[in-house]
């Protein structure tokens, strides 16, 4: 299999994907990137206009800006960019968290984002700590809007966020919005009844490479932008080497490829959901 195999999944071709953090684009230098195996060049035309061209055909690609990112769609956009309601709330910082390239399928990256069991081992001293390793039962469901939602997720975290002063049991809600888009809602350590939101837009560079673009909607109360970004990058830097050591790099959809446990209920459903949507890009399809 060639790494840069082209994508034939309509659901991905006709969807919007983040291809750059706008703050990373220079007005003078074209920016090179890749989406679904297609090499792209971003040109800045004047201060506000961006043009995205395919390197292979030179054709112009649909592009737009939102949430501080540049988005592209290789096909015909069938639906709008994911709507993040928290981005409308005035008492939140809206931040891009730094685009992190990871040498693994973006689907593996989404699955890692949905996983609590690794907190004590990968994010030791921050999002978890031995011996508090147990993943209590939680609920997972497929909503009418065709999103996967995991609720009643609880985990003890020594330093749950940039403003946390002590360890506490954090409530999480996970939502898989699209195959390469996943959101996390977690209790704010200051206003405990409200939730901070991280939406992870994963750019499928090719089947075995991705760039994770976190979009952070954090309550301003008691926090600062640099601290939030720094925390996000600290956590992601801990995940990256683990993700890059997963074999195979693509996400296997065959239920017998790996061994799930109850803590993986949301991942089991995510793989099934991808199968049902016939998403194959970045996956190893199940044998029939």
């Amino acid at each position: 299999m060639s790494i840069a195999a082209l994508c034939s999944d309509r659901v991905l071709l006709n969807d919007w994907h983040v291809i750059a953090d706008l703050t990373n684009l220079s007005a003078h230098e074209p920016f090179q990137t890749r989406l679904l195996g297609v090499d792209l060049t971003v040109y800045c035309r004047g201060r506000y206009n961006k043009e995205v061209l395919r390197n292979d055909t030179g054709a112009l690609v649909n592009a737009t800006k939102r949430y501080g990112f540049l988005w592209a769609c290789l096909g015909k956009p069938e639906r709008d960019i994911v709507f993040v309601p928290e981005a409308e709330e005035e008492d939140r910082y809206l931040l891009t968290g730094g685009s992190i390239a990871v040498k693994v399928s973006g689907l593996r990256t989404v699955e890692n984002f949905l996983d609590m069991g690794h907190f004590p081992f990968v994010h030791t001293g921050w999002l978890g700590e031995e011996p508090h390793t147990e993943v209590a039962p939680y609920k997972v469901e497929l909503t009418a809007a065709d999103e996967l939602v995991a609720t009643e997720c609880k985990f003890y975290q020594p330093v749950a966020s940039p403003t946390a002063k002590e360890g506490f049991v954090v409530d999480y809600i996970y939502k898989v919005i699209r195959p390469y888009t996943v959101a996390l809602y977690k209790s704010n350590p200051v206003q405990k009844e409200r939730l901070d939101v991280i939406t992870l837009f994963v750019q499928p560079v090719d089947e075995e490479n991705c760039v994770a673009h976190p979009f952070l909607c954090y309550l301003k109360d008691g926090s600062d932008e640099a601290g939030i970004r720094n925390f996000m990058q600290l956590i992601f830097a801990q995940d990256k080497p683990i993700l890059e050591n997963q074999l195979p790099k693509r996400l296997p959809l065959d239920p017998r490829a790996e061994t799930p446990i109850r803590a993986d209920a949301v991942a089991v459903l995510y793989r099934r959901w991808l199968r049902d949507k016939s998403v194959t890009y970045g996956a190893i399809p199940a044998r029939m």
């Binding site: 990968v122 683990i242 050591n245 997963q246 074999l247 195979p248 790996e258 799930p260």
Partner: peptide, 22 residues
């Protein structure tokens, strides 16, 4: 469990512990 290389795991002399979920 999740395909993470065991060559990055921890050899404690009696068991090998996976880095990802222990």
């Amino acid at each position: 469990h999740r395909g993470v290389r065991l060559s990055i795991g921890i050899n404690d002399g009696r068991e090998l512990k996976c880095q990802y979920h222990g």
